[in-house]
Design a protein around this nucleic acid. Structure first.
Lengths: 149, 149
DNA sequence: ACAAATTACTTGCAAATAGCAAGTAACAAA
DNA sequence: TTTGTTACTTGCTATTTGCAAGTAATTTGT
């Protein structure tokens, strides 16, 4: 697969993941795409955690360099660019789902409680619901709304 | 469960996990305990990624405050303290395992290739092998050696 | 056609964090 | 009772974070 694999502290698999997505922001961008169907710089900026503009920009380019995102032009509007998950990015979905499970258990105010059916599906078979979710995301859909009922 | 749940940017489950373990070091400590059976400050210090002493100390106290670790005294040696995973910490194992899967796929030099049987077991049923691993870790054993054959 | 918005950034600077090197305090071993 | 070991802390510098402001390339409204 792809590009430069060096400058790493080690090739321990846990460390590899940490070096690429181990900070407070990177996976929030992936979450915004997966759970909420966001795709543009402006949409990410509006997230409730409050990205600073420079940090959002630097994380987006880092994720593109890491081949987790692709940056396409918007055909209809020359100002906008669209950030899309690559396969490597989509493959982070099972990881996000495990984070949801863990937080649902330990954060007493977790918003995971608003999507109990999804949480249950993850618990029963993360792999299966992840595959289904990847298909939705590829179509550009958000996965949360379906489970908010 | 437990303590203070505020000062968070949000109660999004992805964000909650990121605020607690979303940096380059915290999960390396958990990894050292789970995969390699480490438990003391000195053992963590010897990790190949190279903790700075102050950073290791600050992360250890943060993990204790987050109730992921417990810090017990060593009965046999008054200088040493032993860091042990709580239930909340043990419940990070499925997350670590998903990281292993992802890195195994995308890091061409991943050391995950040295434990293909474990990687396969995670792929087939993360929940099941996680439960089994938690039991081993509770006994104080490392989980990797068994799969190095 | 032209002025006003909108979008996606960049730049400058202060504050916080990371990380190296050098201590130090409490115990244990010889 | 000196010497070594363990688990830290402290001081200092370098990097990163994050706010506020600016800007360039469109697009929209009139």
């Amino acid at each position: 697969m792809g590009a430069r694999n060096s400058g790493l502290r080690s090739h321990c698999p846990v460390n590899y993941a940490l070096e690429i997505v181990g900070d407070r922001w990177a996976l929030l961008i992936v979450r915004d795409i997966v759970f909420r169907g966001k795709r543009t710089y402006g949409e990410f900026l509006s997230s409730e955690e409050g990205f600073a503009t420079n940090i959002l920009a630097s994380r987006l380019t880092a994720l593109v360099e890491a081949e987790i995102l692709r940056h396409d032009a918007d055909a209809a509007d020359g100002r906008k660019g669209v950030y899309v998950l690559t396969e490597k990015g989509l493959d982070l979905i099972p990881l996000l789902f495990e984070m949801v499970l863990w937080s649902a258990k330990y954060d007493s105010r977790s918003e995971a409680r608003r999507i109990p059916r999804l949480v249950d599906l993850i618990r029963k078979d993360n792999r299966k619901i992840s595959r289904k979710s990847m298909e939705k995301v590829v179509r550009g859909d958000a996965i949360v709304p379906e489970y908010l009922s």
